[in-house]
Amino acid sequence: MNLPDMDTNPIISVEALSKVYGNGHRALTDITLNIHTGEILALLGPNGAGKTTLISTICGIVNPSEGSVKVSGYDIEQDYRITRAMIGLVPQELTLPSFDTVWHTVCFSRGLFGKEPDPAYLEQLLRDLSLWEKKDSAIRTLSGGMKRRVLIAKALSHQPLVLFLDEPTAGVDVELRKGMWNLVTGLKKLGVTIILTTHYIEEAEAIADRVGVIHKSELLVIDDKQALKHKLGKRQMTIELEQPIASVPHSLSGWSLELSGEGRQLVYTYDSHSEHTGISGLLDAVNSTGLLLKDVSTSQSSLEDIFISLVGTE
């Protein structure tokens, strides 16, 4: 699916990327997207949609079947030494060397990316992640939340420009999730581009600048969070009545009203961007019928509503 994108100098450019695994499973179909420098992009999608395959391909862990990916203009296959040096990856699973200490594993990660040792930077990184006190602890002795932060420290140890977070808050408690959001927004302020996959729509709603929805290997939509709500979201006006009614009066049939709340609510769905929303006419018509109004309210679809409308309730 080709989606229009005006960014002429993206930090990551994915072009017609497809991936079919050896067993015939199609994980990605013709994905084209640009990721802007310094943004937080959330990739939403149900299990098995292709989110992890997409970021694994960009990071060099999965071989693409078709298409190309460029990072800062460099091809991830031909110029892999340059592109991978710019990327940090936090995997979904807590894959850590259990018997290593925090300090040792972070130093290993930095060296692996070809960087000279920099104890001062790593100390600051561990302090920022509240891990400094645990630097000499074996990883197996840490809590799940700390292990997640160790993975982030490893991914940031070589000072990447782009950070991929694969389901960073899966299975963590609310407090830790909020802490993770603060960390991500803090990294954005430092200029790091962040791409995260998540199941949690509220997460995307809270921290992402843009949201992409992947379903059954295809990128269904990608856009600015607010623009997405405007484009795909619905606006509804709910008219609460003093007395319940059995059916929508015939004189209001032109507005496609929905009767709910045991006959006490008339729900009107409209396009807020259209020149004529029809709200004034509807209110006049309701008055003409003699119905007594108790309250009138409006609401906007959440990202969750949009997500469900795109991928269903699976």
């Binding site: 991978r84 894959t95 692996l112």
Partner: peptide
């Protein structure tokens, strides 16, 4: 062992041949 534990991801995503 890194393949078994999954930590091989780091080696595969590093800028090395």
């Amino acid at each position: 062992f890194p393949r078994f534990t999954g930590t091989i991801y780091e080696v595969l995503s590093a800028p090395i041949s």
